[in-house]
Nucleic acid binder design. Sequence first.
DNA 1: TAGATTGTTAATCGATTAACAATC
DNA 2: TAGATTGTTAATCGATTAACAATC
Lengths: 210, 210
Amino acid sequence: MEKEISQAVIRRMPRYYRYLGELLDAGVDRISSNELSSRMRVTASQIRQDLNNFGGFGQQGYGYNVRYLYDEIGKILGLDRTHNMIVVGVGNLGQAIANYVKFEKLGFCIVGLFDIDPSLRGKQVRGLFVQMLEELPAFLEDHTVEIAALTIPKENAEATAKQLQSLGIGAIWNFAHVDLDCVEGLVVENVHLSDSLMQLSYNIANHNDR
Amino acid sequence: MEKEISQAVIRRMPRYYRYLGELLDAGVDRISSNELSSRMRVTASQIRQDLNNFGGFGQQGYGYNVRYLYDEIGKILGLDRTHNMIVVGVGNLGQAIANYVKFEKLGFCIVGLFDIDPSLRGKQVRGLFVQMLEELPAFLEDHTVEIAALTIPKENAEATAKQLQSLGIGAIWNFAHVDLDCVEGLVVENVHLSDSLMQLSYNIANHNDR
DNA sequence: TAGATTGTTAATCGATTAACAATC
DNA sequence: TAGATTGTTAATCGATTAACAATC
């Protein structure tokens, strides 16, 4: 790929995708960067800049075809194919993720649930039985898994991440309250809920929205 | 307040807080920006710049006292006091949040659970009974609530947010898959899980970690 | 005091916005 | 063709990094 695209841009792509999806549902079939900009409260310049990192999806004098742009952004984000995912750590949060239908619609397919707590063995969540983490290697012999949602306490997170990586799972959706950046070569996306809550708390005290 | 502090800085504060907490647990009682920088993989310059937005917490020739800095950042983030929170939408995610002990430790105290689904009425989660959203006004007569965690489908999110605001709840921790920026004066922190997953998906395909 | 390390100013880098020529 | 709106270059703004004087 020619030029590395910044995470600032990538972070905005799902938002474009969402707004375009809504336009699609509303039956709108074309939109200018200007109108999209006023709906999304970003500048039209930014929209055009962002999109042009990936290609010219619009047409002068016309704007953007909503369906086409929606699909193209979907492709950019890898939503044109299925991603198998397992949940490691079947506590409350792990179960919530396993039950979240939305992800499935986007192509993120939960194919297994794993934990180390023997008392969870055989528990069923949304049609899947909880398996022991030690069964994962066998499981991977006849399942392809791309992503592991890591919903375990921080104490075991790093060791578990390394273990998952050694089994060939290269991407971690990390809910544990630690950074996993010490694990080389792993693609990690952090969701630090308590960080988010603290940021909210700061903004309450200082009355700043973004 | 003299100068508005950017959200880029605010977003990093919880991370500092976390690393300092770990140092504290490890019995370290002082640290230089330089050593912290190599642990956290950010520049020492950035650490000093970030902290100096809020005041001079260090001492030349010595560095930072871990305990002191930890406490000060805690104050900045509003962790020196309790924040009452309700959960609106007691599905899987709402229940997971209600059960998450960590938040309590940080001073975010869940005092009520609300939903509009009558079949959930009386259901008990972590010692709290689910109440109907229409009971909220009465509930607020003898409870102070600062934050609402909004874990409901996107269709009702905006209307519900407005309703909460009219009842005096000024801060929303928003898990619904819409932006609530149309609601003026509300402090909103978004946790868009599917956005996060899409970003992960992009980074898998393009093998970039951050 | 000498050494270490901060707080802070200045320099650089990157991201956002503005402007406009290209073109549908 | 004239009008609209993109793609893209240039200008601005803000955030990060480097440097160093202040000072413990």
